[in-house]
Design a binder for these strands. Structure first.
Length: 669
DNA sequence: AACGGGTGTCATAAG
DNA sequence: GACTTATGACACCCG
């Protein structure tokens, strides 16, 4: 039985840019050497920094600095730590970006291990180090017009060096990159986007990461390599909309149900329907449309909780690909006005399935993917979806997640909260890759993205969606599907949003027969789910009413018990009064008629409310006060009756006067 | 075979 | 006006 109380919706606004701003401000402070309270000496160089930042990123510094009582301490690092390895780590601590090259990755890794830099080992080095240490391994696409081979630091953002196979290295100095970035980008987003090379040089940009960014740096033709940190626990960085993870839009809640939480930063940019849903507190479905996704990654976080829902922070942390989420941030985004524009006209932007986000993604970015890029992407994705190849289209059971995460320690504990049903295709690493690899129809990926299934989904909906049509219906439906030869899975018809549905119809150019069939399927499916919801509500209502009935019955029982108890009390009072009357009759008025009248009085006429009042010790006339026995009885009765209850009281005296014809009684009677 | 529960579908009203 | 949702009514299936 479920007796649901009134639902209370709690909305939480979470800024997606706050922590990023904080981090960036700290970086600015560090560059200006303001408020720096610690000096780190590495080899023969000194770095000013903030102890809190270092301690929060490094176990080593945590230990050293928290045990340091002196103000403005100087931490001299041992010889194991080199400038080459430490400087990128320090940069990482303040920017969440790790700039590395093939040449210094090992050194960075060594220093990171020594210093206990969190969030780097498993998320980055375990794969990258062997990748680069074995000479580049697989077939990197190396074309190049590199200008020099000088040692350079890879700059994730704004432009990134490309670790290539020895030769053809990109001659790019970090400062050069920075300058180029600052020249071509705004403060917020553009500099975080990977440059787009205009030639066929190797470019490991994981373009899907940036697919939603509308701003790209047009590269200078140099090789670029950017591996945005994608660990779930990585600190916020100044990554731009590129880091915006599609999962944010489907992350949720909770528990319950439905998180609930749709990471919709800028509520104003949200889809009207989704805003409506939020306002109505009806569903917690994710913004399934792409424009919603994009809207949802704008700054801020609107979270609707109901019950033990996942917090918006949790939701953001679910994103395995968004390093900004560990701090609850989506960087980006604040400065990406184009994103909101995207959400406003999805027909323009998302007209083509194959070209999902194509308008947003530079063609070069998506078109050319090196094998290394693919490997890195798949590795990173597999880190989150093990056995990806076999289950690309199937939701992974949570058990498998647990197992997979167990292998990586606690690194992926947060995956338990992830809805993996839609995960692989929603993985920005794999979305485009899979579209290249799998010859799936466009509807596949689209519908995956458009599907409304998500952890945010209400229990009702999730239950309903899990309930497939009956076997007969399925068989019949499959036959009809074969007849009409739909170019997309029929299962997705009902799960798509209307907008996506219309887009698909527009795109697929269905015949009249197909159109009718599809619309019929969608209508019946919607109605089926509505009927299920309706029946569930009915049952809930019945259960609730049954609970109320039980409650009322118990109350009735209790009242009956009270009633019986009061009856007993009445009987006691009667007996007491009878005894009292008898004692009075002995000395004062031993007239049988009076006694009988008194007996009648107490047995019938006297209001129980009077008799039930607390029996104050009456000042009854004793045997020696026989002359005023009756008046004492009046006094007693008056004293036992509250003032308000005396209205209905007929005193024994008056009663006797009315009922007893006596001539020899006391004058008081 | 009758019966009750579950479910899908249709029709309709309301938003 | 198209669409979604809720709901009553009906039919069907199944145990």
């Amino acid at each position: 039985m479920s007796v649901d109380g009134p639902r209370t919706s709690v909305f939480t606004f979470q800024s997606a840019v706050h922590s990023h701003h904080v981090l960036r401000s700290l970086e600015e402070l560090r560059q200006k050497e303001l408020l720096c309270d610690v000096t780190v000496e590495v080899e023969h160089r000194s770095f000013r920094a903030h102890s809190s930042v270092l301690a929060s990123c490094s176990d080593y510094f945590y230990t050293r600095l928290t045990n340091h009582s002196r103000a403005n301490p100087t931490v001299r690092l041992p010889d194991e730590v080199t400038v080459e390895g430490f400087e990128p780590l320090l940069q990482f601590a303040y920017t969440a970006k790790l700039h590395f090259t093939k040449e210094n990755i090992l050194e960075i890794h060594r220093c990171a291990e020594f210093l206990g830099f969190q969030n780097l080992d498993k998320a980055c080095f375990e794969f990258l180090v062997p990748k680069f240490s074995d000479g580049g391994g697989t077939s990197k696409k190396v074309k190049g017009k590199s200008k020099s081979h000088e040692k350079s630091q890879s700059i994730c953002s704004p432009s990134d060096q490309n670790p290539k196979n020895g030769e053809d290295r990109v001659p790019q100095d970090a400062s050069t990159v920075m300058q180029a970035a600052s020249a071509t980008s705004s403060e917020e987003t553009p500099k975080d986007c990977p440059p787009i090379t205009n030639d066929k040089e190797m470019q490991l940009d994981l373009s899907t990461l940036y697919a939603r960014s509308t701003e790209y740096h047009m590269g200078d033709g140099q090789d670029q390599f950017c591996l945005q940190s994608c660990g779930p626990q990585l600190p916020s960085s100044s990554m731009a909309a590129a880091e915006a993870c599609p999962f944010l839009s489907i992350s949720s809640t909770g528990d319950n149900e439905k998180l609930h939480s749709s990471a919709a930063g800028d509520i104003l940019a949200m889809d009207d329907d989704f805003q409506k849903e939020l306002a109505m507190d009806v569903h917690c479905e994710p913004p399934a449309d792409k424009d919603l996704d994009i809207a949802s990654i704008t700054e801020g976080h609107f979270d609707q909780r109901e019950g033990p829902l996942m917090s918006p922070t949790d939701g953001s942390q679910l994103c395995p690909l968004n390093s900004a989420q560990s701090s609850g941030d989506l960087d980006s985004i604040s400065g990406a006005p184009d994103l909101s524009n995207i959400g406003t006209d999805n027909n323009e932007v998302f007209d083509s399935n194959e070209q999902t986000y194509s308008e947003l993604t530079p063609k070069d970015c998506a078109a050319e993917r090196s094998t290394v890029e693919r490997e890195v992407a798949e590795h990173l994705a597999k880190g989150f979806w093990p056995d990806l190849s076999s289950t690309l289209n199937e939701p992974l059971p949570l058990d498998s997640i647990d197992q997979s995460s167990a292998g990586n320690g606690s690194d992926f504990h947060w995956l338990k909260h992830l809805d993996l049903g839609a995960a692989p295709d929603d993985c920005p690493f794999l979305r485009d890759l899979s579209s290249n690899d799998r010859q799936t129809s466009g509807g596949d990926s689209l519908s995956k993205e458009d599907t409304e299934d998500s952890p945010c989904m209400s229990p009702i909906n999730s239950m309903e969606n899990s309930e497939c049509e009956s076997d007969g219906d399925c068989a019949q439906c499959s036959e009809q599907v074969q007849e009409v030869d739909l170019p997309f899975p029929v299962e997705q018809i009902s799960s798509m949003t209307r907008r996506a549905f219309l887009q698909m119809l527009k795109r697929e150019q269905l015949t009249t027969e197909q159109l009718e069939f599809v619309q019929d399927v969608r209508r019946r499916s919607k109605n089926r789910m509505a009927a299920q919801r309706c029946r569930k509500r009915k049952l809930d209502c019945i259960y609730r009413l049954e609970g109320e009935i039980k409650k009322l019955r118990s109350e009735k029982e209790k009242l009956l018990q009270d009633h019986n108890q009061l009856k007993l009390s009445i009987e006691d009072v009667r007996q007491n009064l009878s005894g009292l009357c008898q004692s009075l009759s002995i000395d004062a008025v031993p007239q049988s008629e009076q006694l009988q009248a008194l007996a009648r009085y107490f047995s019938s006429d006297c209001p129980t409310s009077v008799l039930l009042t607390p029996m104050a010790s009456p000042s009854l006339a004793g045997p020696d006060q026989d002359t005023h026995a009756n008046s004492s009885l009046d006094t007693f009765l008056a004293g036992t009756c509250p003032e308000g209850d005396t209205v209905a009281l007929r005193s024994p005296t008056a009663f006797l006067q009315d009922n007893v014809q006596s001539t020899d009684t006391d004058p008081a009677l």
